[in-house]
């Protein structure tokens, strides 16, 4: 039901982001979505790729500090208020979102947003009950 996200710890120094993306490209991985959170000293790069387990291994072998996290891929209607409705539902259920970022491409008519919440299953239940689609990794990693 949820998708695997790869997090990479990066020092804030020039060339590090390029090094990660170059490595993934050289191994034929396609980056589906990404986000970076950073301070002046360090950052965390979060990635959705096809074949995350393999990408994880490749990155580790190259010396990167990597961890794997499960996140939700939520389909959001691509129109004004689409995301707001989803967030309202989670808020009303008392579910906090640690972070979220969006896919570049769409799943049909809908946008796809990645969300990290504490209780994944409860979030799925809340959203599914309202007819919101949550995509599994089989779909997400192939987009």
């Amino acid at each position: 039901m949820w998708v695997k996200q790869i997090s990479v710890f990066l020092e804030n120094k020039s060339g590090r982001l390029a090094a990660v993306t170059r490595l993934l490209a050289d191994h034929g991985f396609n980056i589906r979505a990404l986000s970076i959170a950073d301070t002046s000293d360090f950052g965390i790069l979060r990635l959705i790729v096809n074949d995350p387990a393999h990408a994880n291994r490749v990155l580790k072998e190259a010396g990167f500090t990597v961890s794997e996290t499960e996140v939700l891929a939520v389909e959001v209607p691509d129109r004004p208020g689409g995301l707001a409705r989803v967030l309202d539902l989670l808020h009303q259920a008392g579910i906090n979102i640690e972070y979220l970022y969006a896919f570049v491409s769409k799943a049909g008519e809908n946008a796809l947003v990645l969300m990290k919440v504490e209780d994944l299953q409860r979030a799925v239940d809340v959203l599914s009950a309202q007819g919101i689609t949550i995509q599994g990794h089989d779909v997400v990693h192939q987009i």
Partner: peptide, 11 residues
């Protein structure tokens, strides 16, 4: 290497 949780707050 094994301490990295992917969480910003932990860092």
């Amino acid at each position: 290497a094994d301490y990295f949780t992917g969480k910003f707050r932990d860092l």
